[in-house]
Design a protein around this nucleic acid. Sequence first.
DNA 1: CGTCTTTATTTGTCGGACAATATCAAGTAA
DNA 2: TTACTTGATATTGTCCGACAAATAAAGACG
Lengths: 243, 243
Amino acid sequence: MATKADTRRKTRSEFSHSKIARDLGTAIVTGRSESGTILPGEVDLAAQFGVSRSVVREAMRALATRGLIESKPKIGTRVREREHWHLLDPVVLQWMFDAAPSPKFVKSLFELRMIVEPAAAELAARKKTGRHLATMGHALEEMARHTLHTPDGQMADQAFHAAILEASDNELLVNLSASIGAAVRWTTYFKFRSDKKPRDPIEEHRALFDAIAEGDGDAAREAAMSLIGIAERETEAALQDAQ
Amino acid sequence: MATKADTRRKTRSEFSHSKIARDLGTAIVTGRSESGTILPGEVDLAAQFGVSRSVVREAMRALATRGLIESKPKIGTRVREREHWHLLDPVVLQWMFDAAPSPKFVKSLFELRMIVEPAAAELAARKKTGRHLATMGHALEEMARHTLHTPDGQMADQAFHAAILEASDNELLVNLSASIGAAVRWTTYFKFRSDKKPRDPIEEHRALFDAIAEGDGDAAREAAMSLIGIAERETEAALQDAQ
DNA sequence: CGTCTTTATTTGTCGGACAATATCAAGTAA
DNA sequence: TTACTTGATATTGTCCGACAAATAAAGACG
């Protein structure tokens, strides 16, 4: 019975190297492992985690690829300076937001959004196609129906913004905001976790959609900035509440 | 003799896993390994490259971390769709520019630079400190003396732009532009056009510096856009020469 | 016809061994 | 003493062989 409804995704088992990479990675990005310090040797770590050295090495390779560590024979594995971290790597961003990120980092994030997303909206207004507008319109309806207080509504919100980036016809912009999206998801979650209920900026979303549909680049830029401004203020308020 | 002059950097020997990652990685980003295809098994690759399976696996881990491949038991290792690639990872970017990137990709990249770097210059004009200006001024002198045709001059150019990003006081902007700049700046030009000489836009650099020094955000934005425009035209010309 | 079981193949993990490398200390000569 | 050379040493890098786990595909069964 219920064969079709039972399409829950299989939780693909997480492999050991992935777990260890996350453990070490979060320790680094949250500052528990300070920059410049030498991590325990691979054999020690292997014993400590109860895995083989191969697994530890693969975890290390993943961290080194993200600029978090640097290994040299005889020296050991050193935690690199923060300036070398790939902060725009989606996984690194996720690890940073697993702990509470610093206000300055959040500010940097919104500053970047305020630079990139209005420009993307302007491009979208110029390069849009009918298919993009259809996707955006559908997402907008879903948002209005479910509101941002439901998971479905939040998913529609993400789909809406994804469609805008898609319409900008610039794969690097898509890539960049895919990374940022991970962080934004956290800020929205954080906002809704605080006691103050954020408002549902459906009006501003509709203004953005209309501007893009009419090909009005300036209006699209304005609407995007307005939306980001709302999100920033609400996030700041939530962060102040938290402490 | 010549003890002090002998401070040339030791060419740190490249490890096997790094070489193999580069081999497989360039094959993927240049399209020689098409998305969706299954790579040979790890044992086969190990035999093919004449290394152990561990080395192949570490190379795979580095590629998977950059979103280029995806491994599953019984299935094998599949080349992921381009939309999953971490195109803004410095190494991926470098691999793409080691071969001749597609005109559309180059256009996307400069479109992104045209969005981000003028904004960074504007921020720098607002937030600069004396130390930043000193660094920028020194780099500017070095550029003028050595010109962009010498390694010293190119390093000074990098230092100049790095100082601007530093002054913008936004670590995400630094991260983003640093990876783009390092891979792309003038290296592409000299790679494909060693015979002809690019113009030395020292005037434009000085204009940018002056605007930032005076705190004139709009002028800084204009100057930055002018510089990127020059770089774009020269890079396009160089790439046309290449084919 | 659909569902469960078996099978085969590939990656994931393990453990031990040796090689390569770079620091540090000891030794030597000016 | 100072500077350079040499060797000891600790750590990562690589190799090898084996087994475990996961999963798509083929086969058995109701």
